[in-house]
């Protein structure tokens, strides 16, 4: 007896088919793309900002931006969407750094979570967020993608349009910096 083989659909093709239908007027189908990709993107925004509220805001504005520019998607939708979210996170980090440039380092908000959000965190998570806040956005991004999102260097290179070697360098520099900040307390 033979069994029917499942039809294997290329995820990129499936996304493009959905996009075509959304562009043709079936806007409600955009919710499928949200559900398909929101979790890793939310975790990226959370790792980058340290604040659930900010991560949620960045994700919402990124999805709306993606919807408004859906006709411009070329290549993989998930990679295109990731770059919108990643740029949103880096813009937010640059803005918050600029806001606090005139303060002494000890006066700066060490992490960007509200006190209420901090209550939900472990001490280690809070310290890690504070340490991450000291990193340049590109180092923080590389560390979060490698260690929080659990991505491979190859996947990171594809998403960020750079080389594996460059990303290993960023991750190594981020680890150095975090160890310098955390080891007195934890090691």
């Amino acid at each position: 007896m033979t069994t029917a083989q499942p039809v294997m659909t290329d995820p990129a093709e499936a996304d493009q088919e959905l996009i075509n239908r959304i562009l043709a007027g079936e806007s409600e189908l955009f919710s499928i793309l949200i559900r398909r990709y929101s979790d890793p993107l939310y975790r990226h925004a959370l790792g980058m900002t340290g604040s659930p509220d900010v991560a949620e805001d960045i994700l919402q504005s990124s999805f709306i931006k993606a919807f408004n520019h859906l006709a411009e998607v070329r290549g993989r939708f998930d990679a295109w969407l990731f770059r919108i979210v990643a740029n949103g996170c880096k813009d937010w980090l640059k803005n918050i750094r600029r806001t606090h440039l005139s303060y002494d380092e000890d006066d700066q908000p060490s992490s960007y979570a509200t006190p209420e959000e901090d209550l939900d965190r472990t001490e280690l998570r809070t310290d890690l967020d504070r340490a991450l806040a000291h990193l340049a956005p590109s180092l923080r991004e590389a560390f979060v993608m490698k260690h929080v999102e659990g991505r491979s260097y190859e996947e990171m290179a594809e998403l960020l349009h750079t080389t594996v070697g460059a990303l290993k360098m960023r991750v190594h520099r981020a680890r150095e910096a975090l160890q310098a900040l955390l080891e007195e307390k934890y090691a």
């Binding site: 806007s27 409600e28 955009f30 919710s31 949200i34 559900r35 929101s38 979790d39 993107l41 939310y42 975790r43 959370l46 790792g47 659930p52 949620e56 994700l59 919402q60 999805f63 709306i64 919807f67 998570r125 929080v148 999102e149 659990g150």
Partner: peptide, 18 residues
């Protein structure tokens, strides 16, 4: 953190705006 899910409000708010 890797097991954190997106708050359901994200989809609801985005779809309402759409």
């Amino acid at each position: 953190l890797r097991n954190t899910a997106t708050p359901s409000s994200v989809e609801a708010i985005v779809m309402q705006k759409i």
